[in-house]
Design a protein around this nucleic acid. Structure first.
Lengths: 140, 140
DNA sequence: CCGCTGGTTTCAGTCTGGCTGTAACTTGCG
DNA sequence: CGCAAGTTACAGCCAGACTGAAACCAGCGG
C-alpha cells in the first residue's frame, strides 16, 4: 500500500492517502451495502431534492449511465424514491426517503469517525492550516 | 467531480483531491503508455534491483498476479528486464533498463509538474506544515 | 399542426484493474 | 527422499466506470 518514496511530495502523499482513506471508508460503508458514490449522490440529493439523473451525474462528474446504476441501488435500499413515473424520455424527479436520511447520517458518521482518526495524527496547531490548505487546493 | 460538501472535512478533501490528482497524473502518464502503478513498480525496482514479483507485489500492496500484469507491460515497454529465465517456480530477478530509468525520470517529472500546480494554490507559509501534516498521517 | 433538435432515461456491450482459484515448478528442511 | 512453503503463471470473475444506440419528451420555427 505504501509506495515509491524518496521524495514524499505533497502530490504523492495526497494520492496515496486519498486511496487509503477511500478504501477505509468504503470498507466501513459496505456494512450497510453502500459505497462512497452512494453517499455522494445521497448528499447531493438531500441538499436539493427533485433533481434529475443527468443533473446528478453532472454534479458528481460521471455519466448519466453510471449514476443510474448507483441510484438504482439506492432505490433498492429504499433510500431514494422517484416522484415521477419511470420511462424513457421523461426526466425523473428524485427524493430521499426517511430511511435515506437515516442512512445518510449514519454514513456521514462513518466518515467523521475516520476523520477523527486522521486528525489525531496531526499536531493540534497544524489542523486548521491543513484543512485550509486542502480547501484552497480543492477550490481550483 | 466535486461532491457532497457542507462540511468539507479533511477526510473528504483528501479523498476527492486524491482522486482528482490521480486522474490528472494518470492522464499525463498515458502519453507514454504508463500509469501510476507502473511508476510505483518502477520506483520500487530502481531503489533495490533484483527483487522478485511477489516481493514487489507485497510492497505495493497488491497481489502477485496484479503485479505480474503491470510488470509484463513494463517489459513490453522495455523498461524492465528479467535477469533469470521465465518459468513457473523459479523466482524472477528483475532490473530496470536504461530506457526504464529514462521513463522513470520523465514520469517523476510529470508528478513534479502537478505538484507545482498543487503547491501554487496554497499560501507560501502553509506549504511546509501541509507536507508535514500529510506525512505524519501517511506514517501510521 | 408538423417536424426537428436537444435533453433524458434506459438497455446493452466493453474496458480496466483489481481479485480469487488453480496449476506447475523450485527450494529448503527434516 | 519427501514434503511444505514460496513463486510464477494462467484462467476466469467482478465492480465500476465508459461508449453506443434506442426510445421518448419538450419546445420552437416555420
Amino acid at each position: 500500500m505504501t509506495a515509491p518514496p524518496g521524495d514524499l511530495s505533497a502530490t504523492f502523499l495526497l494520492m496515496t492517502l486519498g486511496k487509503r482513506l477511500r478504501a477505509r471508508v468504503d470498507e466501513a460503508l459496505r456494512e450497510r451495502r453502500m459505497s462512497l458514490r452512494h453517499l455522494s449522490a445521497l448528499a447531493h440529493l438531500t441538499r436539493d431534492p427533485g433533481v434529475s439523473y443527468s443533473e446528478l451525474a453532472r454534479r458528481a462528474g460521471v455519466t448519466a449511465q453510471s449514476m443510474q446504476a448507483t441510484l438504482r441501488h439506492l432505490e433498492d435500499l429504499g433510500a431514494v424514491e422517484r416522484l415521477s413515473e419511470p420511462g424513457r424520455g421523461r426526466t425523473a424527479r428524485l427524493r430521499v426517503t426517511a430511511a435515506g436520511v437515516e442512512l445518510s447520517t449514519w454514513a456521514r458518521g462513518v466518515v467523521s469517525a475516520v476523520d477523527a482518526e486522521v486528525l489525531a495524527q496531526v499536531a493540534e496547531a497544524d489542523r486548521p492550516v491543513l484543512v485550509r490548505a486542502l480547501r484552497s487546493v480543492f477550490l481550483s
